[in-house]
Design a protein around this nucleic acid. Sequence first.
DNA 1: TAGTAATCGAGACGGTACGTCGGGTCTTTGT
DNA 2: ACAAAGACCCGACGTACCGTCTCGATTACTA
Lengths: 197, 197, 197, 197
Amino acid sequence: MTSEAGSTSQRGRPRDARSHQAVLAATLDLLGEVGYRRFTVAGVAKRAGVGKSTIYRWWPSKLDLILEAAAPQLEIGLAPNTGSTRHDLNIGAEQAIASYSSPIAAQVIFVVIADLEEDPRLREIYQSKWVLPWRISMANALERGIANGDLTKGLDVELVIDMLAGTIFQRVLVIPEPMTDGLAQRLIDLVIRGKLL
Amino acid sequence: MTSEAGSTSQRGRPRDARSHQAVLAATLDLLGEVGYRRFTVAGVAKRAGVGKSTIYRWWPSKLDLILEAAAPQLEIGLAPNTGSTRHDLNIGAEQAIASYSSPIAAQVIFVVIADLEEDPRLREIYQSKWVLPWRISMANALERGIANGDLTKGLDVELVIDMLAGTIFQRVLVIPEPMTDGLAQRLIDLVIRGKLL
Amino acid sequence: MTSEAGSTSQRGRPRDARSHQAVLAATLDLLGEVGYRRFTVAGVAKRAGVGKSTIYRWWPSKLDLILEAAAPQLEIGLAPNTGSTRHDLNIGAEQAIASYSSPIAAQVIFVVIADLEEDPRLREIYQSKWVLPWRISMANALERGIANGDLTKGLDVELVIDMLAGTIFQRVLVIPEPMTDGLAQRLIDLVIRGKLL
Amino acid sequence: MTSEAGSTSQRGRPRDARSHQAVLAATLDLLGEVGYRRFTVAGVAKRAGVGKSTIYRWWPSKLDLILEAAAPQLEIGLAPNTGSTRHDLNIGAEQAIASYSSPIAAQVIFVVIADLEEDPRLREIYQSKWVLPWRISMANALERGIANGDLTKGLDVELVIDMLAGTIFQRVLVIPEPMTDGLAQRLIDLVIRGKLL
DNA sequence: TAGTAATCGAGACGGTACGTCGGGTCTTTGT
DNA sequence: ACAAAGACCCGACGTACCGTCTCGATTACTA
């Protein structure tokens, strides 16, 4: 902006990285302690020892704050590429289960999804940041399985992924108490031995 | 109930059924029009031509009002008993898809589920009023299918139901745009022709 | 009323005199116990064992109810005509002190006067029912005093009355703690021995 | 207070004096226009262009707001010390008449006094802020009059003050239409020429 | 004796104001 | 320029009370 190289002209006091982190940490803490309903921005500010406007300077809204704070907790680990279709899918499924089982997940996921209708931007974020990488890794594993004959040729990859994600979502977050013992194993069994056209 | 004596002596002005209905109708209308975030109890009162206190007399809170108003929309039609396993399950799945596809469902389900953590009463309502009857009807259809040989003997009924519900939930409510064409058909195919142990 | 023309056809259930009395009694009780601010019509109804509409059937508003209930407490006993100017005035002043000292008076008088501005009807009631008879009796006593030479000829009767009423009002109702010992005596002394032109 | 250091470090946005003033002004306006009964905190907020919470941040209740807004209108100008007993008392009496004649006075005084019974804090405020200074100035004038022989030695100062205040109160606020022409003059005549023991 | 009509207790109703709470913006002083 | 502090506007929340309205039940006078 100013002369040349100093692209970001960097005038005035620089952003305090510690504040930034403190806010995100306080957000997660508060979310875990009091839940979304009693979660307030003022509460975060107080706990982080930060002014409220500092929060709003960096995050446009309460929801955005929560989103960024919770993002690391909600990113799903990817399915690897080990050569074994069964193993790769299994790991992928386990990762999804682990991610949804995070105590933060229960507080955040539904609120986010609930606003998808209103705020299309959210859908974008939710999909692209949290589930899309996982979906791609799973799709890749499935494609590899099809290519090497482990899986039926005409397999509907998208449907399989939705089935896996949906079942896990249901078992972990919706029904009264999580039933996840051996869940990944059994779902992958179904995928590999079932006849999904 | 009816036979004996009207035990409740019915003193005082009776509850105005029209007001009651008007409130529930206005609740649904408003929910559909402006969504949960902009939904207001005062707005319901105005639209229903009703005093705000009449609403709070019968529903302890905004959420309770929404719950009761939305309940009929969210009850899932049951799987019938026609003799055909495939047909019964298919109808059951279609019913779930239809129920989740209601415009109200998107506004309400997540808000409700999101509070399940905080308010155990909600989980009870959600489960028992909305999904449990459907689950039972599906379980029955599956058991019949097992009994008459249409389905594998060791089938994990609960897992199948979670899989069906979860996949539908995912496709209708979570992913960017609903993909439900032929969904029931294909899921039931999977259940009947797959090898779920 | 009934005998003659029978104008009021007197059909239907006659008014229940006990309810009427119970309402007035409950009104006074409640006023004394909780004060005007916490006084509610519903509270009166409950205490009187009466329906709220029974109250509103006979009294147009909360204020009217209070007015009628409190009226007997607020009517000031009159100055007599004993032949002694001093004694008559003294009795009159004592009566005013007694009336204003009623526990109900403190609760009611100011509320009533405060609404005089808004509701001219109230001024009428207040003046004619409560203070006018007393003023007349005092005026008469003063006139007799002037006639028989006990009081100065040019005495401003209205001013004297306002002075008496005002001072008593002040001492009983306005200042922190009532100072009424010997008050009547001293005020009448002033009137008789002073030189009010 | 001022000299030393600004003990209160004055952090954060300072109170907006304009808002503060706007609220008090709007309170007086509204009180004058619609009277106490139709006076609304929300109405004040709207008229002052202020949020309701700003009002409640600084005044605990509707009554407190009215009290502070009306206080300047209700403070009575003091009796001076000119050397002339008659003149000093006369001015004092005129001030009381002027103060009670304020259009706000009628709206506020009774409401305040009516609550004296309930809220002792109010009595404190009413007495100390509004009438006590005036009473002291009148007492001083009377004492000076006694000292220099203008007034009888044994004069009951408190009684005279109550008499003056009470009569004025009565004439200005209680009786149907104010009769204040020459009132101060005549009351002071009475005090100076009367024989109050 | 049956009918008619006004009363009663109970309590639901529409409405209005209260005082509280939270979101997101703005304005100070300090660094 | 950015930070903490905290005041600001806005608008929804849930509560309380007013005065009105319906109920079923009661209690007289009328036919």
